[in-house]
């Protein structure tokens, strides 16, 4: 006989569905770079377009993080420490995801994509090479949207900031998301028992890429020739 449906069990849908669907709804709207048509094409324009885009994207990432289950429960200080340490990883995962359908092209925004030639002309060849390595990795894995949103939330929760006060709370956030990924893959791809592990093992390359990109932008900041908004500067400095 079927067990009686209790209120508790009736209220408890599969956790994986809850988390994945929540993260899918929390996905931000598309961003546009809107390069200044008055500026001549070249490295200065590309850098200033990217810095302006990054500043707006950080605002979006902060709003997005507030929608990650468990994140708002962290202390304000810990929310700041987490975001200051991982914002660029979250941003780059978004860039990698947008670039997946395009062969050898980095889609920084809907209206701002660079192929190798354009990246060279814009003085971004080294930076784009690093991002392309990440894109190729996710393309080889045939990353799905559900996996992307889970991985992005995990990148947030995977902060190793030494400034975090309540590490246990961050670990709980990480565990809940890890569990959601395991459950998702268990249900979606039972024939690929190592897929969740493979996805998680892309996080070191994501961090490495973020470090390279950070140094690129920090050099630009030190040169002082590219205008940077205050929030972008604040977040760059927090990582150095």
């Amino acid at each position: 006989a079927a067990p009686p449906i209790t209120t508790a069990s009736a209220k408890k849908p599969a956790p994986m569905n809850t988390m994945v669907s929540h993260l899918l709804v929390a996905e931000p709207e598309k961003l546009y770079a809107m390069p200044d048509p008055a500026l001549p094409e070249g490295p200065a324009k590309a850098a200033s377009t990217l810095c302006d885009l990054a500043d707006r994207e950080i605002v979006v990432i902060i709003s997005w993080a507030k929608n990650i289950p468990g994140f708002p429960a962290l202390s304000l200080a810990d929310q700041m420490s987490v975001l200051q340490s991982v914002w660029l990883e979250v941003l780059l995962l978004g860039v990698a995801w947008r670039s997946l359908p395009c062969e050898d092209e980095i889609v920084f925004a809907e209206d701002f994509a660079l192929d190798e030639e354009a990246a060279r002309a814009a003085g971004l060849l080294e930076l784009s090479g690093a991002v392309l390595q990440l894109v190729r990795k996710y393309r080889a894995l045939r990353l799905e949207r559900e996996e992307y949103v889970l991985l992005k939330a995990l990148a947030l929760a995977n902060s190793d900031s030494v400034h975090i006060e309540d590490m246990a709370a961050v670990q709980r956030l990480r565990d809940v998301l890890h569990e959601a990924l395991l459950e998702y893959e268990g249900a979606r791809r039972p024939e690929e028992p190592r897929r969740a592990g493979r996805l998680l093992l892309t996080l070191p390359l994501l961090r490495q890429t973020a470090t390279r990109v950070l140094h690129h932008f920090y050099s630009l900041k030190l040169e002082g020739r590219v205008p940077m908004h205050k929030l972008f500067l604040e977040m760059l400095e927090a990582m150095m």
Binding site: V25, A26, V59, I62, S63, K66, N67, P72, L76, A77, Q79, M80, L83, Q84, K230, L231, E234, M235, E237, A238
Partner: peptide, 19 residues
């Protein structure tokens, strides 16, 4: 917090989401 005042303000302000 003083050094990171924009992040601090953005985290504090508004509702957690508009979804």
């Amino acid at each position: 917090t003083e050094r990171h005042k924009i992040l601090h303000r953005l985290l504090q302000e508004g509702s957690p989401s508009d979804i």
